[in-house]
């Protein structure tokens, strides 16, 4: 294989789109069941801060794309994130939906539920997945994002609640993301690091 991309998030999909358009030999490996699974958990409050400018007062698609912080580039002007929601700060779930549609629309070569476990190199890269498959590729593109929590080394930090598993101050059902966002026990004293 010429190009192997790890991760089917926005970056992985965008690369896959251009590799597909150019007729290249490529494959995307994705650990989750759909594209953009990071957004199913993060941000924990499920509200994106990348603005969704649906109304620009302009019909020029180039300018509209310049104001659009979420869409991926493609020839299909109908496949823009602005068509998915009116919310200025959109729900993360809308992003997951959009990325799924994007991958399907262009029949991008993505293998889901496949986590890369080990990468070795002997001339070309050799990739082993958790399903026991092996791939060999000349070029490897890491589009994994920053997937591990970063923890400063502070004595006792492991006794605190971590952002990724922290309970109850975050609502995760996107429909209620606004109403029940961030509730603390009444009168309690929380510290956020």
């Amino acid at each position: 294989m010429d190009h192997l991309v790890i991760g089917a998030g926005p970056a992985g999909l965008q690369l896959a789109y251009y590799l597909e358009q150019a007729g290249r030999d490529y494959l995307v490996l994705e650990a989750g069941a759909t594209p953009g699974t990071f957004f199913r958990t993060f941000p924990r409050h499920q509200r994106l801060i990348s603005i969704n400018k649906t109304h620009t007062g302009c019909t020029d698609p180039e300018l509209n794309l310049r104001m659009d912080w979420n869409s991926l580039l493609s020839d299909d002007v109908g496949l823009r994130f602005t068509q998915y929601t009116e919310r200025y700060f959109p729900d993360a779930e809308d992003m997951v939906r959009y990325l799924g549609d994007f991958a399907a629309a262009f029949r991008l070569r993505i293998q889901y539920n496949t986590r890369v476990e080990k990468i070795t190199r002997n001339g070309s890269f050799r990739i082993v997945t958790d399903r026991g498959q092996e791939y060999e590729t000349k070029r490897l593109i890491a589009a994994t994002g920053v997937s591990k929590p970063y923890l400063p080394v502070i004595p006792g930090i492991e006794t605190a609640e971590l952002y990724d598993v922290c309970q109850s101050i975050f609502a995760t059902s996107s429909t209620s993301a606004y109403s029940s966002l961030a509730k603390a026990i009444p009168g309690s004293r929380p510290l956020t690091i």
Binding site: Y150, R189, P190, I193
Partner: peptide
């Protein structure tokens, strides 16, 4: 003194899947 301590210190790239030679 606090009732809860919530650690929101961000994320990092996972290089552990790469073998030492690469």
């Amino acid at each position: 003194r606090y009732d809860r301590v919530i650690v929101c210190t961000g994320f990092r790239f996972d290089a552990s899947i790469f073998d030492e030679q690469c």
